[in-house]
């Protein structure tokens, strides 16, 4: 009897401890893991988010960069961290929606995490070297079909979104372009400027300054709707490939075991952040749009993206055999 009582008591205190910890959260500094090197686009988003959350939650928020494996190392670390709301991830599309499909990761994008909210999105821009006689997406498709394999595109490497978005484009419109991988998005963009490669699907951050300086020609954006940064530039979907939508996003995710009470609190803070004019302004400098989604919407979006890339990879491997 004594034992049972003791057990009940222990269970009770254990239970109340978790409840209390959710109520008191945050009572100590929060670690925001950025799975990329400092200085990059995700790092900027992470630091803007940390700065806002720090004010909003009146608690220190530490940004910790854990770069490696295209975001896999840091994401993996968060998926294995205790779900107490003190370790969060500034996750991104590459490590969450693409890597688990294209290679093997020790985490499952939906089972190992609790997605909280997408905080920013950034479309890619189809840019070509201005010396090419290609002025529109229609020109691009025509040229590519007339010269199969001759057009070259730069990417950030075989596992990255810059490669997958062109692979998806090729599969949808029936073109064949030659893949030229670089170590990162920035040298790939530089190669379009110098003319070493003909084109690339480059994220807005890298593309915008070059477009403004007329060192590259922008043909389209890859998001479902036009970008606020280039309102005159059409989307890929409205020109040559209806339904085509690729967008890079960064979102806050927590380990799967995180209590819902804490997730709700973070979600509320992120909702306020999406409406904050200063955050919007700072995100815009990085070429990103400030976004808020509910945990359910975010989860659904990841599911949809995983399906899209899985189908594409199957199409590609079917063609090879």
């Amino acid at each position: 009897m004594k034992r049972i009582l003791l057990a009940a008591l222990l269970m009770g205190t254990g239970l109340s401890a978790t409840v209390a910890s959710a109520q008191e959260w945050p009572s100590k500094p929060i670690k925001l893991v950025v799975p990329y090197a400092p200085g990059g686009y995700t790092d900027a988003v992470g630091r803007i988010t940390a700065r806002f959350l720090e004010k909003e939650l009146s608690q220190t928020v530490i940004v910790e960069n854990r770069a490696g494996g295209g975001g896999i190392v840091g994401s993996d670390l968060v998926s294995k961290s205790p779900g107490d709301g003190y370790t969060l991830c500034v996750c991104s599309v590459g490590a969450i929606s693409i890597a688990p499909v294209a290679q093997t990761t020790s985490y499952d994008p939906l089972k190992s995490f609790k997605p909280i909210s997408v905080v920013s999105t950034i479309p890619q821009t189809v840019i070509v070297n201005p010396s090419l006689p290609i002025n529109s997406m229609e020109d691009l498709v025509k040229y590519a079909k007339a010269n199969p394999g001759k057009l070259t595109y730069g990417s950030s490497g075989a596992g990255g979104l810059m490669y997958f978005s062109v692979a998806l484009f090729d599969a949808r419109v029936g073109t064949k372009m030659t893949h030229v991988p670089f170590k990162g998005g920035s040298p790939a963009t530089a190669a379009v400027v110098s003319g070493e490669v003909n084109l690339s699907f480059t994220n807005m951050t890298d593309a915008l300054p070059q477009i403004e300086a007329n060192t590259v020609r922008a043909l389209a954006v890859t998001s479902a709707s036009r970008s606020e940064f280039l309102p005159k530039v059409a989307t890929v979907a409205e020109t040559v490939s209806p339904g085509y939508a690729v967008e890079s996003w960064n979102g806050i995710m927590a380990p799967a075991s995180t209590p819902d009470a804490i997730v709700t609190k973070i979600s509320a803070a992120l909702k306020k952040m999406a409406a904050d004019p200063e955050v919007k302004k700072n995100m815009a400098v990085a070429g990103a749009s400030t976004v808020f989604t509910t945990p359910a919407e975010y989860t659904a979006q990841i599911g949809k993206e995983v399906d899209q890339w899985r189908t594409l990879l199957k199409e590609i491997s079917d063609k090879k055999t």
Partner: peptide, 24 residues
């Protein structure tokens, strides 16, 4: 165009201060 890790970091610093480094 940043050519090394340090330069990429400086790009990040400029971006966080509201300056997008580019040809202009």
């Amino acid at each position: 165009i940043p050519t090394s890790a340090t330069m990429a970091l400086l790009v990040g610093a400029l971006t966080l201060h509201g300056i997008a480094p580019g040809p202009t």
